[in-house]
Structures are given as C-alpha cells and as structure tokens.
Amino acid sequence: MSLHLTDVTLTYPDGESRLTALDRVTLDVPKGSLTAVVGPSGSGKSSLLAVAATLITPDHGTVTIDGTTTTGMTRGELTDLRRHKIGIVFQQPNLLPSLTAAEQLQVMARIDGRSPAKARTRALELLDAVGLADQAGRRPHQLSGGQRQRVNIARALMNDPTVLLVDEPTSALDHERGAAVIDLITRLTHRQAAATVLVTHDRTHLTAVDRIAVVRDGRLRLPTPAG
C-alpha cells in the first residue's frame, strides 16, 4: 500500500470540549488506484486530506506513506516527505502570480535541488500531458480557470509523488470542465502509478474512479468499487 491510514482519530478544540473530526479512520490506497472520498460539508473530508498530507498530526493512529510511518517525525522530516512522496492538488489552483505555467512546475524541482535543465524538460512534458504545452509561458492571470486547475494538477506530479491528494478539484469549474479534470486525474493516476485520494462532495463525475469511500461525522465507511 502506498497510503495507509490506521485507526486515525483527530479532534479540534471547540470551546471547553473537543470536536471529533476523524473517528478511528482506516484507509488503504494502493498504487495506481484512485479512491474518491465523498461526504457532505463538515463531514471530515478535508481533515482526512490534511492528515494524509502530513499537515496535521492526528491525536491517535498512524499514517504510512510508501512504507514510511510519519509518527514521531520532525517538522523538517515531514517537509522532506511531502516534497518527495506527496503531491497535492489544491481546491483553488493556488498558483504563484509571478511565475509562468512552466515555472509553477519548475519551482517544485528547484525546491528539490534538481538541475534547471532537467526541471524544464520535465515541466514541459507534464504540461503537454495536461494539454497545456502551448501555454507554458503564460502567467496565471493569462490562463482560464480550467487551465489554471490543470497547471495545479501538473505541479502536483512534478516530483513523481507516490501519493497524490486531490482536494475538491471541480468546485470552481463548470460541468464539462469538471468532468475533463476528473478524467485527467484518473488517467494520470494510472500513468504515474500514484495512490490517489480525491476528496469531493460532488458525486457527478465519479464514474471513472476505482473506489468510493463515504465519510460522515468523521467516520469512514470502507471503500467500495465504483460504478
């Protein structure tokens, strides 16, 4: 398994008591598969994604990324793990305004200390894979919403992550563009052999995913095959 959450519990302070965001959640995501996590707003989807992304340490339970258990890791070690093993597709594209589409991807390789020439080649390959080869020199304000989201997806794949975490990627897109984005994520998951978790409250585009898990009130119902 590339992503393995075992008995994860996460609580937040809520006045004098604590609110349980995730309640003994266990989730296994194998390589090359796309698992959709669906549920209503406030059900714990985003918390699950944040825990899997190592951005929050759970109160209880373990997170294992590509065989590495994150329990007890320092902040620096978690940052290294995110850089090498985890790709994140944000709900909003979150592109840096001063960078072109190619540079949005190259910055990931620069953070990782890779050579500029190799980084540029890889960035152009990925932009080609998401259908933006001819937009490589454009900045975010020169791209459409769908194009920005595709740059967001390509950026997440730049460091060849083992785990791909996708947060509500269609929330700002119309139906047609949303379907195209989900289709793209599915294809890239299989092509890159990534263990992908797609968090969404919208079930309309989920015909192509491998499994669907439902989260409600912090509890996860075991994934079932889609379709």
Partner: peptide
C-alpha cells in the same frame, strides 16, 4: 503569506 503556505505545503523548507 498565501504563496508561502502553498510552497510549504508542497515541500519547501522554511530555511529555503
């Protein structure tokens, strides 16, 4: 700050 948060989430070190 928002850009910095994104870069940190993507694996950029604070020192860098």
């Amino acid at each position: 700050s928002a850009d910095v948060a994104v870069l940190k989430a993507l694996g950029a070190s604070t020192a860098g």
